[in-house]
C-alpha cells in the first residue's frame, strides 16, 4: 500500500478551504511518537491498556469539537489528550484526528472517551443506518459534488 504520493501534493493548498463552521487552523501538533521504544508500545501506555472508551461509541466519522477554549495549563492531562483538545478547536472527525495524531484508532477512541467523560469535548454521532432516508441529505451531497 502506497501513501498518498508526493507529486499530487501541490493540489491541496497548505491552508485547506475552511467551511463556515471552521475556526482558524490549530497550531501544528508536536510529534508524539518520538519514544525509542516505538509506536507499538506507547499507544497502550497512553490508554493504560484500555481497549474501550469509557463513554461514547466514536465511529470513524463521529464529529468532535472541544467544549472549552484551548487550555493554557495541563488540566492534569497528558500531551496526547491536550493535542486532541488543540485539534478539536475546529470540528474534526475521529478519522481525521487519528490521521493528524498518527495514532491507532482504538487509542484515539479511548482518549476521546476520557475527554468526553470530563466534559471537555462534545460530539455528534453520524446518522444511524436506519435514518438514511432523509432526501435533503442526498440532495445536499449531490449539490456538493456538482460544485467540486
Amino acid at each position: 500500500m502506497m501513501p498518498p504520493e508526493d507529486p499530487t501534493q501541490e493540489r491541496w493548498p497548505d491552508e485547506p478551504p475552511r467551511p463556515a463552521w471552521h475556526e482558524p487552523a490549530p497550531p501544528p501538533v508536536p510529534p508524539l511518537l518520538d519514544d525509542p521504544s516505538g509506536p507499538m508500545v506507547r499507544p497502550y501506555v497512553m490508554t493504560s491498556g484500555r481497549l474501550e472508551p469509557a463513554r461514547g461509541k466514536f465511529d470513524l466519522i463521529t464529529l468532535v469539537v472541544a467544549a472549552i477554549p484551548e487550555p493554557d495549563g495541563q488540566l492534569g492531562l497528558g500531551p496526547e489528550h491536550l493535542a486532541i483538545l488543540r485539534l478539536t478547536q475546529q470540528v474534526m472527525s475521529v478519522a481525521e484526528l487519528t490521521g493528524h495524531l498518527d495514532l491507532p484508532i482504538a487509542t484515539v477512541r479511548v482518549m476521546l472517551g476520557d475527554l468526553l467523560d470530563q466534559g471537555l469535548i462534545s460530539m455528534q454521532e453520524p446518522e444511524p443506518e436506519a435514518d438514511m432516508h432523509d432526501i435533503r441529505l442526498y440532495k445536499a451531497v449531490i449539490d456538493g459534488l456538482r460544485a467540486l
Binding site: P19, W21, G56, K57, L60, I61, T62, L63, V65, A66, A67, I68, P69, V91, S93, L116, S122, M123, Q124, E125, P126, E127, P128, L137, V141
Partner: peptide, 21 residues
C-alpha cells in the same frame, strides 16, 4: 441526536452531520 449527548461546540453552534462513501 440518538446518543442524547451534546452536539454543540464551545460557542454553542450546531455541529454538521457527517456522511461517508
Amino acid at each position: 441526536m440518538v446518543s442524547g449527548l451534546s452536539s454543540r461546540g464551545a460557542d454553542g453552534r450546531r455541529l454538521p452531520t457527517a456522511v461517508k462513501i
